[in-house]
């Protein structure tokens, strides 16, 4: 499996230049405008969460996914590799940002840390939903579904807010957010746990899909 990880890293090294640039630029932007890191962290997390999908797309396009079946790694290794990377990328990004926040952006507070962890968990949650689809349908066909998975909840949330408070106003959004945050604050450790469990369940599903997949 080590070989597969190395391969993905080499392939992504070539592809990661642009996303890294965007993220770096955003970081500088945030630094100089003294804004809070939320936008930067959220965007970066999304980018790094789905980097794995790019690796998968490369595999499909080149026929490596077929080829690796003839290697002494076993079918499951392909799945394990992608899941490992799908966890590591946003996780390392989170650690990096926690350090950056502490030393470059006026220090780290518990609440900020919690909200950053929450964002990372959402990223992990998202990739947990998306990876089985990608394994099942291929990255091309599942692209549309991947977008829907973001937009449909987003639209649902806006719809809820509209219904709940009559108008879409920033105070309404903030108060709902605060409600939710308070709810989760009490049981905070619950969230990363749920995210990891989701990822593991997703792994099992993907493994099952990949076992039966025909090339």
């Amino acid at each position: 499996m080590k070989g597969l990880i190395i391969k993905d890293l080499i392939v992504l090294k070539g592809q990661a230049k642009i996303p890294l640039l965007i993220v770096a630029v955003y970081l500088c932007f945030t630094f100089f405008s003294n804004d809070d890191m939320t936008m930067y962290h959220s965007m970066g997390t999304m980018i790094f969460s789905v980097l794995v999908i790019t690796a998968l797309a490369f595999d499909e396009r080149s026929g490596w996914d077929k080829y690796s079946l003839t290697m002494p790694v076993g079918r499951n290794a392909q799945v394990y590799t992608k899941y490992l990377l799908s966890f590591l990328f946003p996780f390392i990004f989170l650690l990096f940002n926690l350090v950056v926040k502490q030393f470059l952006f006026h220090g780290l507070t518990i609440d900020t840390a919690k909200s950053m962890v929450l964002v990372t968990c959402i990223g992990v949650f998202y990739i947990a939903l998306v990876l089985p689809l990608a394994f099942l349908l291929g990255t091309e066909k599942s692209r549309l579904l991947m977008m829907l998975i973001i937009f449909v909840p987003a639209i649902a949330i806006f719809a809820y807010i509209k219904l709940a408070s009559g108008t879409i106003s920033s105070t309404a959004i903030t108060s709902i957010t605060t409600d939710f945050t308070n709810l989760f604050s009490k049981h905070f450790l619950f969230i990363p746990l749920v995210a990891i469990v989701m990822l593991l369940l997703s792994l099992l599903v993907s493994r099952g899909i990949y076992q039966r997949k025909e090339f």
């Binding site: 070989g3 391969k7 392939v11 490369f58 080149s62 026929g63 490596w64 002494p72």
Partner: peptide, 29 residues
């Protein structure tokens, strides 16, 4: 599979790799 050598009718290595990369990867496989 350790003792199987397979050549398919498409080049099955991701295009952005070089032959040195291939060597590095295969060494670990």
């Amino acid at each position: 599979n350790e003792h199987l050598g397979i050549v398919l009718n498409e080049c099955t290595f991701p295009e952005t790799l070089t032959t040195s990369d291939v060597s590095t990867i295969m060494k670990h496989i």
